[in-house]
Amino acid sequence: MTESLLYFTQQVINGLTVGSTYALIAIGYTMVYGIIGMINFAHGEVYMIGTYLSFIVIAGLTMLGLENLPFILLTALIVSMMVAGAYGFTIERVAYRPVRGSKRLIALISAIGMSIFLQNYMRLAQGPRDIAMPGQIQGGWSWTLDGNLLNLSYMQVIIFVVTVISMWSLHLFISRSRMGRACRACAQDQGMTNLLGIDTNQIIAVTFVIGAALAAVAGFLLGLYYGVVNPMIGFIAGLKAFTAAVLGGIGSLPGAMLGGLILGVTESMTAAYFSTEYKDVVAFSLLVLILLFKPTGILGKPEVEKI
């Protein structure tokens, strides 16, 4: 009994960790969709760039002879958030703003183009190979019960906690701050918001910067956790995060969190009790099922047609 219970708990922990990372990336998709109604397919690439940036900063500071780990990590986090934010701002300016007035499909194609460009740009700039970094934060807690092991690494706890904190502060920002109110207004009716004297261009730019900064947080955490990066990681991560966002209800922040966690736990449960081969199959079947019965996703609100 204890053995199967421990095993179950272990797999839930694994699933929650993976799920948190999906959720962190999913926020970027869901925010942009909520405000301008388009899918930013280049978002996974910003996550990838965030991972590279944090690797570069950590390696650079270590080479300079610094030994204060918290300082190095914090600097890496802040720098990668700032630079990724700049990428987010530029992507919006270059690829999305010029086509914003036209059909949605055009913005979508522009986004895919941006994603391919960024992938290949990083391939040229950093090389196509896997770049690895030794683990910075190692170890964790483990409990033994009747000879069975339960592991909880520090990194897993950090990932979960940072995800919850980011989600919560973003929620506060959107619901309490002046800028957040402008964002919500923008989501409801851009034209009207503009008439009331709010610069919608600025609001949309801010949305992209925040989304990109959060993707960089995910990149930083996952870079530390897995220790490996290559220019292609953004594609799969982006796909999974997009699925999480749709599952939870795209446009909804708590939905992104919930969707990410459900996806992560489903995958890990499939791997645990069925077979690793089928974890993607089961995860995507779940997505299809939920969309069949609730097309807006778990926490999504039905869209009201604007006249």
């Binding site: 694994n14 960790t17 592991n151 996952l222 897995y226 490996v228 292609m232 890990s268 690793t276």
Partner: peptide, 15 residues
């Protein structure tokens, strides 16, 4: 069992 090439997380498999 098979894993997917490109995957980064193998914690479930290892457990």
């Amino acid at each position: 069992e098979g894993v997917t090439a490109g995957d980064k997380d193998f914690s479930a498999l290892i457990a």
